[in-house]
Design a protein around this nucleic acid. Structure first.
Length: 511
RNA sequence: GCGCCUCUAGCUCAACGGCAGAGCAACGGACUCUUAAUCCGCAGGUUGUCGGUUCGAAUCCGACGGGGCGCACCA
């Protein structure tokens, strides 16, 4: 580029690539529309050909061809030298070339930004997963599938909100920094507030604050928010993930089953046009009604064992041992039963299916079952072998809640770091009276995986959690290849640290 | 945390104990309807790092680092 070039401050775009196709799609080969547009995007393919040049201009909406001619295009020579990835704004008449490609015949154009780094092989994209996740901006241009998945997630969350608003739910925001991280079984991340001289935990659930809002009169309330769990990573777990929780006063868990099946199947229709989809090569139909079955019945179907929360503990332990489960001595029958279910049955459930009636022992925030106090009125929705939603009739009795928290505290004292913490503010709030209420949590990332047919949760998270690079101070930009960056930080002289020209740019910019 | 796999040019990949290569990108040039354009030319590397075995290592071995998958963990 010329040394005098500096990027313009704005570009007056009049049409997206998709709009050009919509409006002039009927143009015949060789026909000229007589109308001008201004389009903008990245040049992703370039085919200079002597006194003609063709380029594919890609924007968020799609792509349209630019057609430049030496005779009529300003700065034609520079146009033929554009690099793949350069941002360009172009103005000209919409035409269809003789060979049939709808194009903007460029009268004038402007370079909006240079691409000094490559976006990978123009045919094969970028497949190195480390590069794809660490440099998502590269991945999004190199791999259309990545863009499709993240676009789908965005539309899914939009429609989720719209559907809940339409049902009369009020969206709220509750704090991320919690004095006590409670509401789920998980280890928290701890951080520190200096001015208050106090430790905070990043929230592991939204539950307790939302129920306090119900106590405060928000009788249909929801939040879509990030929660943080200090646990391992896998294809289905990211340490920070997005949770939808909603609470509806005067309703019970059976009402929420209807809500879940309508919500999830409705989103499938919104985004895919059908409830009948394929996940990882296997058919899955989300059309309501979904099967409802108790945990006991499902375990029996999967294993042939007829067990429930009243089965003698010795017998449950024996079955667990047979299934290869290491049983902790402190576990009661409910915990053993849950383990048995999770290890032998859950993954075999393709679903969708509502698994009903969990042991009270493992559900400290759920209300006891109206027919059996050893159980709670709780369900999980299992789809494609995974938990997609978890819901219950909420525990409203402050005395029972206190007793359940104290039981959790005993487990914590016995070494269970994930046992639920006692939240005294929540207990006090409950004493003001929580009406009969049903509550639901849906893993938004997992729902996106399902609808996008993604095998890995990282595909539906724009910037998934990765080990931080050690080169934070010297390298900054670090785009020169993640594999090399780690080694360079180690045993090199100070002189070599400045070798990458990008580093100098960073220093210059930061002063 | 444990096990297995993996790391070669900006990107995608060869070479698998005997001179480190190709395609794309980039750079220089030709070309008036291209569609992953084509053609000619040029350049690009401490084969993740360190150590070992060997006459000789990208290749075999070890350690370390990054990444992946599985297990564990995860209501």
């Amino acid at each position: 580029m010329s040394e005098t070039w500096s990027p313009p401050y704005r570009f007056g775009r009049t049409a997206t690539a998709a709009e050009v196709h919509e409006r002039w799609g009927e143009l015949a080969a060789g026909e000229e529309s007589g109308e001008e547009v201004a389009v903008a995007g990245r040049v992703m393919l370039s085919r200079p050909q002597g006194k003609l040049a063709f380029a594919e201009l890609r924007d968020w909406s799609g792509a349209v061809q630019l057609f430049a001619l030496d005779k009529t295009t300003k700065d034609f020579a520079a146009f033929t030298r554009l690099n793949l990835g350069d941002w360009v704004g172009a103005r000209g008449e919409v035409v269809r070339t003789r060979r049939g490609e709808l194009s903007v015949r460029v009268a004038e154009w402007v370079l909006l930004a240079e691409a000094r780094r490559s976006f990978g092989d123009k045919w094969r994209g970028v497949s190195d997963v480390d590069t794809r996740y660490r440099q998502r901006e590269v991945d999004l241009w190199a791999n259309p599938e990545s863009r499709r998945v993240l676009q789908l997630r965005s539309r899914m969350v939009q429609r989720l909100r719209e559907r809940l608003w339409a049902l009369g739910f009020v969206e709220v925001e509750t704090p991320v920094l919690h004095g006590v991280a409670s509401g789920a079984h998980a280890r928290p991340f701890v951080t520190r507030h200096h001015a208050l001289d106090a430790d905070f935990n990043l929230r592991i659930a939204l539950e307790l604050h939302l129920k306090r809002l119900v106590i405060g009169g928000f009788d249909k309330v929801f939040e879509i928010g990030r929660v943080f769990r200090n646990e391992g990573l896998s294809t289905r777990h990211n340490p920070e993930f997005t949770l939808l929780e909603l609470y509806e006063a005067y309703a019970d868990y059976r009402d929420l089953m209807v809500l879940v099946e309508e919500l999830v199947s409705g989103l499938a229709v919104d985004l895919l046009g059908t409830t009948s989809l394929s996940y990882q090569g296997r058919d899955l139909d989300l059309a309501p009604p979904w099967r409802r079955a108790t945990m006991t019945d499902l375990v029996e179907e999967a294993t042939g064992l007829r067990v429930d929360v009243h089965t003698p503990l010795d017998e449950l332990r024996r079955h667990a041992a047979d299934a290869g489960i290491e049983v902790d001595a402190t576990w009661g029958p409910g915990k053993v039963l849950l383990e048995l279910y999770e290890k032998t049955t859950e993954a075999t459930l393709w679903g969708p299916v509502f698994v009903l009636d969990y042991p009270a022992e493992v559900s400290p925030l759920a209300r006891r079952h109206r027919e059996d106090p050893a159980l709670v009125e709780r369900f999980e929705a299992i789809v494609a072998g995974r938990e997609l939603a978890n819901a219950f009739s909420e525990l409203t009795d402050p005395d029972d809640q206190r007793a359940r928290f104290e039981e959790q505290a005993r487990e914590r004292a016995a070494g269970d770091e994930e046992a639920m913490a006692v939240d005294t503010e929540f207990l006090r709030a409950l004493e003001h009276g929580l009406p009969p209420t049903a509550g639901l949590g849906i893993g938004v990332d997992r729902l996106a995986m399902l609808l996008a047919d993604a095998a890995n949760i990282r595909e539906v998270i724009a910037f998934p959690t990765l080990r931080p690079l050690p080169s934070a101070v010297a390298g900054a930009g670090g785009a020169g290849g993640a594999a090399g960056a780690g080694g360079a930080a180690g045993g090199v002289d100070g002189d070599e640290a400045a070798e990458d020209p990008a580093d100098e740019d960073v220093e210059g910019a930061e002063g």
